[in-house]
């Protein structure tokens, strides 16, 4: 983070906003686990540990024109793209007004058309070919915009990772693929997922740049994504960025990571916590102090409490809506049988 010394005022403002976003995301995530342990939410899947790289990436984009094709650990990213804490919590509690799916999908399956966040599914990596297609439409219409798709390193073993990057490289599409390498594909460590040390090395197979960045350094990620976006807008094609990061929680609320990693390993990873490290960077720059921190934590607590209360009071979907949105013409029967 040596760049910190030669930054402009506007950039310093940006960093403070990044930090605030990271802290908000961590606090919302914590609350989700509490709701899960209270029996109020059946499932949590989180991005704790990955907030820094997501905050860096999202501020390098233009939410007015770009598209996001995220994956399930991307709460920081979607908050940065305009989804609100209330909306996040509506999804977590499976309420009717959840913008991602109206409570139809598991939590963290983000989607929000007005915010240009593509709906996602659970079979991993399908979003990367979708992202290439979103980018294809930009290229065909000669629009200056880019698409960011994210995934874990485990997902890079899927065929569609290869198919999407190859397609995007051949057609020089404005696509940025950001791999959040937290070292584990649920329980399987990277050494048993692939025979390369860096996912970014795979970029060579597509004739595109592959960049490795430290995930706990939001500024480094911001700069890498900004450079990739410039390359995309210039018509030079996709970039593969790999952010080395950590997953501080089990894979999900149904997993127990004590069965495959040691407490020592996790403790060591927490020395590289993006929130702690970035706070120190900001403090060293004179951009942050204990008073600002205390104020932010109080503010964030109110936001998280509000989101939780709002979502808890919000209604569930009406069972009669089960039949809606199979087809656009849902006044007509959805199928030949079963609709008498």
């Amino acid at each position: 983070m040596a760049e910190a010394a030669r930054t402009t005022g506007a950039e310093r403002d940006l960093w403070v906003r990044m930090y605030r976003l990271m802290v908000l995301s961590r606090a919302l995530d914590h609350r989700m686990w509490i709701l899960n342990r209270q029996g109020k939410s059946a499932f949590v899947i989180s991005g704790q540990g990955q907030e820094g790289l997501q905050a860096g990436a999202v501020f390098a984009l233009d939410p007015a024109v770009d598209w996001l094709a995220p994956y399930y650990r991307d709460m920081t990213l979607v908050l940065g793209f305009g989804m609100t804490p209330r909306e996040v919590m509506l999804g977590q509690l499976a309420k009717a007004a959840d913008p991602s799916s109206g409570g139809r999908q598991m939590p963290a399956h983000w989607g929000h058309r007005a915010r240009r966040i593509l709906t996602g599914s659970s079979p991993v990596t399908t979003q990367v070919t979708h992202a290439a297609g979103l980018a294809l439409a930009f290229r065909v219409r000669h629009e200056r915009a880019a698409v960011l798709s994210t995934l874990g390193e485990g997902s890079t073993n899927q065929g569609e990772f290869h198919e999407a990057l190859n397609f995007a490289a051949v057609h020089r599409l404005p696509l940025i693929v950001l791999v959040q390498n937290n070292g584990y594909s649920i329980s399987v460590p990277q050494s048993k997922e692939m025979a390369v040390a860096d996912v970014a090395a795979r970029a060579a197979g597509y004739g595109i740049p592959g960049v490795v960045v430290r995930g706990s350094d939001p500024v480094a990620v911001y700069e890498a994504v900004r450079a990739a976006r410039e390359r995309a807008l210039a018509g030079d094609g996709p970039t593969l960025i790999e952010a080395k990061t950590h997953r501080y929680t089990p894979h999900s609320s149904d997993d127990d990571d004590r069965s495959y990693r040691t407490p020592e390993e996790l403790r060591a990873q927490k020395q590289d916590d993006p929130i702690t490290l970035f706070r120190e960077v900001l403090a060293a720059q004179g951009l942050w102090d204990d008073e600002a921190e205390a104020r932010l934590l109080q503010e964030v607590k109110l936001v998280v409490d509000d989101a939780t209360d709002y979502a808890e009071k919000a209604p569930y979907p009406d069972p009669a809506t089960l039949w809606l949105h199979v087809y656009g013409s849902d006044d007509a029967p959805a199928a030949g049988a079963g609709r008498d």
């Binding site: 990367v128 290439a132 297609g133 979103l134 439409a137 569609e160």
Partner: peptide, 15 residues
Amino acid sequence: AAIIGTAIGAAVNGL
């Protein structure tokens, strides 16, 4: 898979 996957993305983005 890329042919259909990218077509889905392109369809969402107005084509």
